[in-house]
Computed example of a mutant assay.
Amino acid sequence: MENKTKKNAVVLLSGGLDSATCLAIAKSQGFDCYCLSLDYHQRHIAELHAAKNVANVMGAAAHKTANLDLSLFGGSALTDDAIAVPESETAGIPITYVPARNTIMLSLALAWAEVLKSQDIFIGVNALDYSGYPDCRGEYVKAFQAMANLATKSAVEGHAITIHAPLIDMTKAQIVTLGTELGVDYAMTVSCYQADSHGEACGLCDSCRLRREGFAAAGLADPTRYKKHV
């Protein structure tokens, strides 16, 4: 499965379950992985500490954290402390959606990819077991890729950009099963929307629910450290 000649890839790494799996997939395909995280002044930074640890343990070629304060705009429970994180399922697009976050992160990844002479960007979006975010859909990924190939020097000079979303059609159970086969230590990852400073999960938010259900459906032990009994 590995390529004989390694190529560079930029991997968006949040520190959560999906992005760690995405990194493992990129590595299994023979890429040298340059991991990019975003400090957007989210509700907690435990996931950023997790991202640094994941990148180090999983042998990333480099890891950078960009700083862009999206709390200037608010509009999300993840960027505005005055908006509570829902602890039960909600209808429609939830308040944990961060306006334009994936577009911003992919744009930053695109910039770094051009500098690295990389034609490959990996993002761990998922359209099945997800919270209803519009920027986690396959049509969004295809649209961004089309834009990237119109907007970059790389593509204009014949080196087209590919946005890889290998988890897009997978259930959370399938994701954790594949990641486990690829050697991902999910105890390192933090998915909770309101984890504490030690990375302990609330066990109640949408992200915790999907993660917990994924391990259960896969028949695998959930290594998540919870603050509360669930």
Rank of each mutant, 00 (worst) to 15 (best):
D80L: 13
E139C: 12
A148H: 09
S131H: 14
L48S: 02
A160M: 12
A143E: 14
D81I: 10
K27C: 05
R101F: 00
E200D: 10
A60V: 05
A20H: 07
E139L: 14
I163M: 10
P134S: 07
L48P: 04
I83N: 03
I93A: 11
S107G: 15
A218V: 00
S88R: 13
K227D: 09
R211I: 07
T79Y: 12
G179E: 02
S107N: 12
A46K: 05
I104Y: 06
M147Y: 09
A218G: 00
T96P: 03
S37D: 02
T79L: 06
M170I: 04
A155E: 09
Q42P: 07
S197H: 02
A26H: 06
A26L: 06
S107C: 06
S19P: 10
C208L: 03
L116S: 07
A77H: 11
N53H: 03
K52N: 03
A151F: 15
H44E: 11
A143Y: 02
T5W: 10
G16I: 04
M170F: 08
A82M: 07
D206H: 10
V176F: 00
Y193L: 00
D135M: 01
G30W: 03
A84V: 13
R209I: 11
Q145Y: 13
L220D: 02
A50P: 03
V85E: 06
N56Q: 11
R137N: 14
I123N: 10
N8K: 10
F144Q: 13
A24R: 02
V230K: 14
I168Q: 08
V54F: 00
D81M: 06
K142R: 13
C205M: 04
I123G: 12
T162L: 04
T65Y: 04
G183V: 01
R211S: 04
G183K: 01
I25N: 02
V141Y: 02
G132H: 05
G158V: 11
L178Q: 00
V57C: 03
K117W: 08
A113C: 04
N102R: 11
V85G: 05
A26W: 04
G214V: 00
L72A: 12
G199K: 04
S76A: 10
S14E: 06
S28T: 10
D196K: 02
I121G: 11
F122G: 02
E87T: 11
P99C: 11
D39L: 01
A173F: 08
